[in-house]
């Protein structure tokens, strides 16, 4: 066998290895991109739901049935979600007055996306409650 032939085999092998490396990186990169953007879309959807629920006054209603029905309607059926509502009043600091948790049960293996919004409720044109809504969403 000539020396040139050995070198050619060597070069071919290097190219094959490099090509495998490149395709592996490209494949992993493609997967990472899809997953990250899916999470971002979910995050935007959660934020939109929280903003809508605040601005339509549903959080201020403190009505768990109404809130449950609205969120179920707003999210796609492929989503599971869990919402924790807390209502605080102010007397020498913020004190928890009322709250509830609605939605689906979540398992430890679920990969979740969450968001959070603070809001206020009024009675006779004065702030009566300061509230927080914590929404967690995951794919079924």
């Amino acid at each position: 066998m000539s020396k040139g032939f050995a070198l050619s085999i060597d070069a071919l092998l290097a190219i094959v290895i490099a090509a495998i490396l490149i395709f592996t990186i490209a494949f992993l990169s493609g997967n990472a991109k899809e997953s990250q953007y899916q999470n971002l879309i979910m995050k935007k959807q959660i934020n939109d739901v929280l903003i809508v629920m605040d601005k339509t006054g549903e959080f201020a209603s403190m009505n768990s049935t109404l809130i449950n029905a609205s969120i179920t309607e707003l999210f796609p059926s492929s989503y599971s979600w869990r919402l924790k509502m807390s209502y605080y009043n102010y007397s020498n600091g913020f004190e928890l007055e009322d709250g509830f948790i609605i939605g689906n049960n979540q398992s430890a293996s679920d990969e979740t996306i969450e968001s959070h919004r603070e809001f206020i409720t009024f009675s006779n044109s004065s702030v009566i409650y300061y509230g927080t809504a914590e929404l967690v969403v995951w794919l079924r």
């Binding site: 990186i25 992993l28 991109k33 990250q36 999470n39 971002l40 995050k43 934020n47």
Partner: peptide, 20 residues
């Protein structure tokens, strides 16, 4: 490029939180 792609949604998610 892969690192940038991974980084962009993370930054956008942070901006989302700030806008919220």
């Amino acid at each position: 490029y892969s690192s940038q792609i991974k980084g962009t949604p993370t930054e956008m998610s942070a901006f989302e939180r700030m806008n919220m």
